[in-house]
Design a protein around this nucleic acid. Structure first.
Ligand SMILES: [Mn+2]
Ligand SMILES: [Mn+2]
Ligand SMILES: [Zn+2]
Ligand SMILES: [Zn+2]
Lengths: 144, 144
DNA sequence: TTTATAATGATAATCAATATCAATAAGGAG
DNA sequence: CTCCTTATTGATATTGATTATCATTATAAA
């Protein structure tokens, strides 16, 4: 299961980096892997406080950054000034449709687009490390 | 010429919206349309101060927002926390290759990608209003 | 001109993210 | 297990870009 896989990956990352395993990190890990996607730091912090009062905002920020470093999370910026995180699925990738009406996020994969991106980069003698593709607009419900 | 076109478009926007034509707006317009692309607010402010000491930072911010509203500028966020602006070419569109080594920005257009984006959106019953496609990586020089 | 209203610019406020730092916890050595 | 070094935590202060405030100034219509 993806959740357990990510938890295991993070524990290995902590060990490999000489970091320490702490109660807070485990708690944040638990909540994060079982969360709906694209949560802001604030949202995750509130969810965590409900289960683990006393947790610090700074610790949540720091730990989410570690999640991103370890590869189990992706940091996302939708342009509203809030950093969001989503659990990563190893070996998978997707981009986002963002409804500016209700804020709903849909996900999609399109291998042809990905290939064309690589072709474009090749033409510029450019080596892609990562990319961001976001489609902003209105979902069906918000258009009615 | 594109520069004069954009200046004219902005002046019409100002008139249409019942705004006032001011020395500051004209100065900012002059500098903006003749600028290299993807300048941060801070960079534009410094460039403006050189030619027009006394200009206020807040005025630069406000005016750049007006440029974006009027359609002669695009607001860009490359994820470094600084808002950038680039002159818009009416009826044209491009996306960006961002070198994480030296910060150089290359531009590209790919109509096939654009069509595929629309197809993806259609499949989700989603109406695209705008999109963001950025390819991050290393340019040829930074790879050597 | 006169006058109503918008714009300006100095400054304060905002807000998410990050840095600081004393107190606490982890975990290896003995 | 206990000691000890070092990392982590969380309260708080700070940062940095942007936005709001507001007294002063400028615009443009009457
Ligand atoms: Mn996603
Ligand atoms: Mn551009
Ligand atoms: Zn919607
Ligand atoms: Zn480069």
């Amino acid at each position: 299961m993806k959740r357990e896989k990510n938890k295991e990956l993070f524990r290995k990352f902590v060990s490999r980096q000489g970091l320490k395993s702490t109660r807070q990190r485990e708690n944040i890990l638990d909540v994060f892997v079982s969360t709906k996607q694209h949560m802001s730091v604030e949202e995750l912090y509130e969810k965590l406080r409900a289960a683990h009062p006393g947790i610090g905002y700074a610790t949540v920020c720091r730990t989410l950054k570690l999640f991103a470093q370890s590869g189990i999370a992706h940091e996302i910026h939708f342009g509203d000034g809030r950093t969001r995180y989503e659990p990563a699925a190893q070996g998978e990738h997707h981009d986002h449709l963002v409804c500016t009406g209700c804020g709903t996020i849909a996900e999609f994969e399109n291998s042809t687009i990905e290939e064309l991106q690589t072709a474009v980069a090749d033409g510029h003698d450019f080596l892609i490390h990562s990319h961001k593709l976001e489609l902003y607009g209105l979902c069906a419900r918000c258009r009615k």
